[in-house]
Amino acid sequence: MSTGHLTIDLNAIAENWRTLDAMTAADTAAVVKADCYGLGVEPITRALARAGARRFFVAAAEEGAAVRAALGPGPMIGVFSGHMAGDSTLIRNNDLTPMLNSVDQVLRHFESLPQQSFGLQLDTGMNRLGMEPAEWAALREPVLQQMPAMIMSHLACADEPDHFMNAKQLRSFREMTEGLDIPCSLSATGGILLGSDYHFDVVRPGIGLYGARPYEAGRPAVTLELPVIQTREVQPGETVGYGNTWTAQRPARIATVSAGYADGLFRALASTLGLWHGDTRCPIAGRISMDLISVDITALGDEAPDYLTMLGAHQGVDDLGDAAGTIGYEILTSLGARYSRSYQS
């Protein structure tokens, strides 16, 4: 096999959901947008449903249709982007629940799908999606008469527990939802970890399902193994890869593996990252190119590995994010389509 192999541990994902669910008295949903963070909507949503999830959230109506196809009737599927122009048929045919974000969306939904379930998204200070307090105050009574399924907002700084913004948004959300007998939701993974004051009626873990930050205690759910195409001996003074950025300081063995930035392994990773063979770290030698990565396997002696591990027990998506100057979310959602995949359950 000439492409890398991605293994997704469905048991780990289900266990992470159950553990997060046990942290709260709220109903625990699952955020499965972007094809379950790039890992495959059908197997993952079904595993989460078996674990007990009955509410799912996606970014767009098209994603909601894919989740409905995987799960069938029953579970609620909320759409964060709300009711966009042209989405009415998708929303109706797939029984989606758009989280309406604006006056325009409220009017569109009530005019085109008056019997369809909906939720409301409120802006508590992130200034991204949702109705601002004045808009909500003007629409509150007529909207509540239509019996929304949920009212939600989103925390901007939940991954920083001491950030002043968390308490500020909590106060705002409480003020905007005071007196309501409707399920309310403020927290994704980071908000769950902030404690029960932030939980309300529904929580919405996403990245935590895969054991990535901010849920440090979670089980990592992804392993990525890259096949070795060729090995060679390199003498002192010889260089490896584009730009001659790596020069051998001693006799070295170099393995070239099949993956690169076309597969979501960013070029910036090369300066600090290694791959692993068992418990032995093997540093990257030179630049990551589109399809290939060169790795210094001198520490393995005469051993000739068939593959090296990029993501596994010693190195997770957050480690790759740190090395690339980004976050684990971006690494996870960038893993490319060329990898073969298997799902452990």
Rank of each mutant, 00 (worst) to 15 (best):
N11I: 13
N11F: 02
I13H: 05
R18G: 12
D21L: 07
M23K: 09
T28Y: 00
A29H: 02
K33S: 12
Y37E: 15
T45K: 03
A47I: 05
R50P: 02
A51R: 07
A51D: 09
R55T: 14
V58T: 10
V58W: 06
A60G: 03
E63T: 05
G64E: 10
A66K: 09
V67K: 14
V67I: 00
G72C: 11
G74Y: 02
P75W: 09
M76Q: 15
V79Q: 11
T89L: 04
L90G: 11
N101E: 08
V103N: 00
R108T: 09
H109P: 03
F110G: 14
L113D: 11
Q115C: 05
Q115Y: 01
S117L: 08
F118L: 07
G119P: 06
G119E: 10
L120K: 00
L120D: 01
L122C: 07
L122A: 03
M126K: 13
N127K: 12
L129C: 09
E132R: 14
P133A: 10
A134I: 09
W136T: 02
W136L: 06
L144F: 09
P148A: 04
A149S: 14
D159N: 15
D159Q: 11
H163F: 02
N166W: 04
F173S: 01
F173W: 04
F173G: 00
R174D: 10
P183M: 12
C184E: 02
S185R: 07
S187H: 00
S187Y: 05
A188V: 00
I192G: 07
D197E: 14
H199D: 03
F200D: 03
F200L: 10
I207F: 06
I207P: 08
R213M: 07
Y215D: 06
P220H: 08
A221E: 04
V222I: 14
L224M: 11
E225V: 13
V228H: 06
V234C: 04
G241D: 08
Y242I: 02
N244M: 08
T245M: 14
W246G: 00
A248S: 07
I254R: 04
T256Y: 06
T256N: 00
V257N: 04
Y261L: 11
L269F: 15
A270G: 13
A270H: 15
L275H: 06
H277I: 02
T280L: 03
I288T: 15
I293Y: 07
V295K: 06
V295T: 01
D296C: 04
D296W: 01
L300G: 05
D306A: 13
Y307V: 08
L308K: 02
T309P: 05
A313W: 01
H314N: 13
G321S: 13
G321A: 08
E330Q: 12
G336S: 03
S340D: 11
R341F: 03
